[in-house]
Computed example of a mutant assay.
Amino acid sequence: MEDVTPQISASMQARRRLEQPDWIAIDEVPLTPLEQAYLHQVQIENLLIFTPLLIIAPLAAILLNLPGSLIIALVTGILILAGIVSYCRYRYALSIAYGVFDHEFIMQKGLIWHKKIALPYTRLQHVSLSQGPLERYFHQHTLKCFSAGSGSAEISLPGLGDDTAEPLRKHLLAKASQKQASQKQAAQEQNSLKQASQNQAPDGRED
């Protein structure tokens, strides 16, 4: 009698249930921080934001004949605000990191509320690079990853240098194509197994 029991594919055999001791916390995953050039870019952005304000605000106060004490208070307030905002933006830039793994792309960010995003390659549809004027000066790029069914970028990763940005974009697209093809093949194998099971006779023999 010929054995017509469906054989389990290698891709299905490789999938096994992990017990809790085998779970890996996302905090334990090693991530790569952004390049130092991006931190310099953030500092320059802060200067470009607050330097004009420090010049225009006192001049406007003088033209309006405001008291000297009020002008000093205004400048002091702007300096304090500039210091707080600059520090927060710098610390936020330090919090950004990313990791390229076999099954997903991970990004973390956040100063007060920490956020980690894991995007599986099976859901990755499009990857783009963009550059603003200041990014071009510092040779930096922003990488954006779009997932299936998402109108906006699920991951927006700034601070990638020329040597990293384009190779990373190509790698992510290649991994997405590979994983999605494997997922499609596994689905076809599973459908074939179901079809073979349905075609068997109740007693395990073919009529």
Rank of each mutant, 00 (worst) to 15 (best):
L54A: 01
I55L: 13
I55Q: 01
I55D: 11
I55Y: 01
I55C: 02
I55S: 03
I56G: 06
A57T: 10
A57C: 10
A57H: 08
A57Q: 00
P58S: 10
P58C: 07
L59T: 05
L59Y: 10
L59M: 15
A60Q: 02
A60S: 13
A60F: 11
A61M: 12
A61G: 03
I62H: 09
L63M: 14
L63N: 07
L64G: 06
L64Y: 06
L64S: 13
L64F: 06
N65Y: 09
N65R: 11
L66A: 12
P67H: 02
P67V: 11
G68F: 12
G68I: 12
G68H: 03
S69P: 01
I71Q: 08
I72H: 06
I72V: 15
I72N: 05
A73H: 07
L74Y: 06
L74H: 04
L74I: 07
L74P: 01
G77R: 09
G77Q: 10
I78C: 02
I78D: 00
I78F: 08
L79S: 04
I80N: 00
L81F: 07
A82Q: 11
A82G: 00
A82T: 02
G83F: 04
G83K: 06
G83L: 10
I84Y: 07
V85T: 12
S86N: 07
S86E: 04
Y87T: 14
C88Q: 13
R89V: 04
Y90F: 15
Y90M: 09
Y90S: 06
R91W: 12
R91P: 01
R91Q: 15
A93P: 02
L94F: 10
S95P: 00
S95Q: 06
I96V: 15
I96L: 13
I96G: 01
I96E: 01
A97W: 03
A97M: 11
A97G: 11
Y98T: 00
Y98V: 05
V100W: 07
F101N: 03
F101S: 11
D102W: 09
H103A: 14
H103V: 12
F105Q: 00
I106P: 01
I106S: 10
I106Q: 04
M107E: 02
Q108T: 13
Q108K: 15
Q108E: 14
Q108D: 10
K109Q: 14
L111I: 08
L111V: 02
L111S: 01
L111T: 10
I112T: 10
I112N: 05
I112V: 14
